[in-house]
């Protein structure tokens, strides 16, 4: 028998008593055990940001974060951001700007953006770029994502798409 530990994981405000192996990552436990498949696994080595979730409000890569280390902390996933039937400003701005194509990066990108805006509600374009530097999007070329985050922050850049990241 493999060694296991008993945890109480607080995810999106709900406590989940759960038995995990010490080597299990937070990403695997959230996806495979709790059915929270919003976060995605791509690189699996903390390079792409697809697995970004919040731990006590800070963006972390769940693919390289051990589930056991989340004990005693508040985990927030993309599912936890949805308010019953109501889109958040970031969700709305992502849709308005078409800030995704395939959508595989989107949950991670949104969590990174949420953490960024929580820390800095009125970021500059350069600060937005820095805030999502750890999140890869292979589809959009980032331009609409940057625009969407700025829009959600209420700092709509009139030049929009033509300004790129710089």
């Amino acid at each position: 028998m493999r060694e296991t530990v008993e945890l109480s994981l607080v995810v999106n405000g709900r406590a989940h008593p759960i038995r995990v192996e010490p080597r299990e990552t937070l990403a695997d436990v959230l996806r495979e055990r709790l059915g929270l498949t919003g976060l995605k696994i791509s690189c699996d080595v903390q390079v792409c940001g697809a697995c970004t979730v919040l731990v006590d409000g800070l963006a972390i890569s769940a693919c390289t974060y051990l589930a056991a280390d989340a004990e005693g902390h508040e985990v927030t996933t993309v599912e936890g951001l949805a308010r019953a039937g109501q889109l958040s400003p970031l969700q709305q701005s992502f849709i308005d700007a078409a800030a995704f194509q395939c959508g595989f990066c989107t949950p991670g990108m949104r969590m990174a953006a949420t953490a960024l805006l929580a820390e800095n509600p009125a970021p500059t374009r350069a600060q937005v770029v820095a805030g999502i530097e750890g999140n890869i999007c292979r589809c959009t070329g980032y331009v609409p994502i940057i625009d969407a985050i700025l829009e959600a922050a209420g700092a709509v850049d009139a030049a929009g798409v033509s300004e790129g990241a710089r």
Binding site: C43, V45, V47, I132, E133, N135, V161, S162, G164, R166
Partner: peptide, 19 residues
């Protein structure tokens, strides 16, 4: 053969763009 050493563009690599 991994994403650390095969580098794809990130947000800071995007130039001003006219479409």
């Amino acid at each position: 053969g991994n994403l650390v050493e095969y580098r794809v563009p990130r947000a800071s690599d995007i130039p001003p763009f006219t479409a």
